[in-house]
Design a protein around this nucleic acid. Sequence first.
RNA 1: UGCCCGAUGGUGUAAUUGGCAACACGUCUGACUCUGAAUCAGAAGAGUCCAGGUUCGAACCCUGGUCGGGCAACCA
Length: 559
Amino acid sequence: MESAENNARSLNFIETIIEEDLQNNKNNGKIHFRFPPEPNGYLHIGHAKSICLNFGLAEKYKGLCNLRFDDTNPAKEDVEYVDSIKEDIQWLGFQWNGEPLFTSNYFDQLYGWAMQLIKQGNAYVDEQPQEEISRQKGVPTRPGTESPYRNRPEEENLLLFEKMKNGEVADGAMVLRAKIDMSSPNMHMRDPIIYRVLHAEHHRTGNKWNIYPMYDFAHGQSDYIEGITHSLCTLEFEIHRPLYDWFLDQLAEAGRPRPRQIEFARLNLSYTVMSKRKLLEMVEKNLVSGWDDPRMPTISGLRRRGYTPESIRQFADRIGIAKRDNVIDVGLLEFSVREHLNKITPRVFGVLDPVKVIITNYPEDKVEMLELINNPEDETAGTRQVPFSRELYIERNDFMEDPPRKFFRLGPGREVRLKGAYFVKCEDYKKDENGNVTAIYCTYDPDTKSGSGSQRKVKGTLHWVSVQHAVNAEVRLYDRLFLDEDPAGHKDRDFKEFLNPDSLKILQNCKLEPSLKEIKHGDKFQFQRLGYFCVDKDSRSEYPIFNRTVPLRDSWKKM
RNA sequence: UGCCCGAUGGUGUAAUUGGCAACACGUCUGACUCUGAAUCAGAAGAGUCCAGGUUCGAACCCUGGUCGGGCAACCA
């Protein structure tokens, strides 16, 4: 593929750094990444970008990539999320190095390091109330003031920290702070809190701990413990980097690989929200059916919608890696699925909004089995037999009573090809009292059978399903969840105000060709002329249910 | 008002490190077509945020601005 060639030619800024490090034999040429999700929600397409980056770089440079759950806040985390995250990463086609790891594995080490900081005079226990501490922090433009406890003796710090650990201190009553610089222009360096008291049960360590480390005190050190060489994260952590480095300066030993934090811009997708908090809110308020609702930008949602891992990885590849803020057009994601599904998906006939066609000159009880190509993009996909008979369903919008000139479909007196079958010409049609077309009467031309070499040409080709052989099905059509390009970008309006009321349409009278009787959850098809569809997990054999992954490009609807 | 990032067609990402802006999506033509899909051929669209400077030569270097994003959770 040409994009791969381009990639070989030009590196993104992270690859440039890595290749420089390799050239300088930094860390003895060791390359080790990590993907560090907090298990407090499901992964979304933004995480997919990060997963593809970290695991992809590990593949490219023959390095390793750990999976490490950043589980330092038991109040928000849950094993349900741990499991879904593992599943999503593997579904995308990546495998982490060794066992999944947890920051909580390092709680003992982190505790030890905290004591070391105290002994080095780099940390102290503060027992002021939260409000006081935050007041003393000052504001970005003005320096903060030092805590009265800042210079308490080492023994006292050790003793109090011990009490915190032993559960003798109430939540919020004391914290351990790094002693850095209350007047730093970087707020994160103003004596950041590194341990807080939290009498909460942790999903892995149970009730062992009454104190938990903060992100800043845990992340860099965990990277260091695991021998991570390149610690990739999103831009909002840029300002944390001096602190990340500061802890390592205090604690790291010479001769061991020292991780370097590198920040890149997170993914933003038009017409969607991408924060776990907002996604969680939609789940909790039942605005969607769950984390895996096919309209959700979660990996599980995209999977259920019918996206393939390949298409998501291809998408991640296309959007690139840089440091500037970006908004990627959802159209690019859709392009990526279409591209892949076009190659792998069998073509079938499905009529979503059926209207009956009666071929008046075709024998009443005759049934012909016609051979149709499964996938013109894939010769190995073979053919299948599809029954043709006197009464067929076609798509309601493939017929117009008074069609414009450029309408290459059916209308009074117009002739079209029924794909894989014959030409039919509309001779008459019937309407009910409401003006709805109820039946279209056609004649067919027996000389135009597919493959017969007939020279006559016709402009349009329609898909169809034989009435007596049709399988009834439900089809769920999805549209973008939000009507606004940037639903979360409005200062005074809640993102939920922009929800698209028509993001889900359920069609329950769809007619499918009989080969679709034998299907299983997750199977993917192209419903010819309509789009790509997959079998939903709600589907039952008596009543199949399909999700429309994405419609085909349609240059007609634009006219 | 402090500090940290960033700025290249409509959207993203490049430009062999100073050699006269490329690729993808999208858009528009046309060809082909038993999917108005796919495929193929072609076109339009930025002179690189602005102003100076260095240089034979600047998207890349320097200076000063402008604009956008981020930072003041016992979240990550």
